[in-house]
Amino acid sequence: MLKVEHLDLYYGAIHALHDICFEVEQGEIVTLIGANGAGKTSILHAISGLLPYRNGLVTFAGCPITKMPPHKLVGMGLVHVPEGRRVFARMSVMENLDMGAFTSRSKEDQARTLEKVFEHFPRLKERRRQAAGTLSGGEQQMLAMGRALMSKPKLLMMDEPSMGLSPLLVQEIFAITREINREGVTVLLVEQNAHMALSIANRGYVLETGRIIKEGAAGDLLRDEDVKKAYLGT
């Protein structure tokens, strides 16, 4: 469904991503794990078109999307939940969700999707009139995910959804991610919390200083000695 081939990205003279190749198949949860600064976020930004890259080919659902402006991808079904939630703090929860449905033209469709989002995140329904900036971190993460779901994504790219959340909330967020996946949304998950990410993913890629150093089934990676030592803290 998503294919990244030979992606090279530079920040000025710094070669930040080296020859990144990976694939996400329809229906999967795939995770990119790695330490802070390994280049996980840069990969998502490159795919979304927020960061220009030097070489590489990105295809989504059979379409080349290399160097496509970010706003065009949403309509194709490729949606990015950015790191740090990035909700519109001064807008209400409802307005944030409306922004998520920006590309959808049908009101009925929107209402139906909204119902579904509220099923996943009942707390958002309670707080729909509240300014998004007054929500707790966990609620903001839910809003960021709900907002992304409003555009009916085929592939959801989530960047560090567990960041700054309590262990209980992290579990909740991951459980919902799995639910969303079961309903047919493919997920590309970028995480520092490797254990959590691998426990819900089908496959994973391990990133180190801008290179993919390992890939495999999530279960195998969980048992891999190097991965254990470096990222799982056991």
Binding site: H71, G75, F88, R90, G100
Partner: peptide, 17 residues
Amino acid sequence: KAMRAVSEDFDAAQLMG
């Protein structure tokens, strides 16, 4: 609303389409 979204967060607004 799109104007307000862009003024709050340029990148996030793009990610909304």
